[in-house]
């Protein structure tokens, strides 16, 4: 039962500090689940990210569902998903009911002007360490860079690259082995 509450609490923190959507939660997930709790390895973390990208809906929920199941089965799914959603739900309701127009508050705007560039840095740091661990350094780093540019600026769907990678991986590694 300890794991149940730990999972809830970890994903509650992830839900609270995911600012700016999608991958902004990634550094928090990595710090909490890989580095601190050591529930999953860095290698597995990358595999799981591929899976949650291929599933529809909010990525934070997909991640909570997958990791919840992986760490503590069905109860883990409940704890992690509920934890990830609850902070959003409570904060948004408070704003909608009590603090309409908070997005125009000067202190609020000032805080977020500080947070936004920091969040970008927080997303970039794991890119470097993950690339080292996954042996995608040096000239091979051009692969992820090419993918990143096509997704960010040519608006190619991430799903396209995920499917392409599954096909290419089987053709390449199937033929040449390890």
């Amino acid at each position: 039962m300890k794991t149940f509450f730990e999972l809830f609490w970890v994903f509650f923190k992830i839900g609270t500090f995911t600012i700016g959507g999608g991958f902004a939660m990634l550094p928090v997930i990595r710090a909490e689940l890989v580095d601190r709790k050591k529930w999953i390895s860095e290698d597995e973390f990358l595999d799981i990210l591929a899976v949650v990208q291929s599933s529809p809906g909010p990525i934070a929920v997909n991640t909570a569902v997958f990791l919840g199941l992986r760490i503590y089965g069905f109860l883990g799914l409940i704890a992690a998903t509920f934890g990830a959603i609850l902070p959003s739900f409570v904060i948004i309701l408070m704003i909608a009911a009590l603090f309409q127009g908070i997005q125009n508050n000067p202190y609020f705007i000032a805080a977020f002007k500080g947070i936004k560039p920091a969040v970008i840095a927080l997303i970039l740091v794991p890119v470097i360490s993950l690339a080292k661990k996954a042996n995608v350094g040096g000239i091979r780093f051009l692969f992820p860079v090419g993918i990143a540019l096509s997704v960010a600026y040519a608006h190619v769907s991430p799903i396209f690259f995920i499917i392409a990678a599954m096909v290419v991986g089987n053709v390449w590694f199937g033929r040449f082995g390890k």
Binding site: G22, L46, L49, P126, V127, V136, G146, A164, A165
Partner: peptide, 13 residues
């Protein structure tokens, strides 16, 4: 093959 791909997707974010 998905590993370098996912790293690219994070970078794109």
């Amino acid at each position: 093959a998905l590993k370098p791909t996912v790293i690219g997707l994070i970078l794109s974010a």
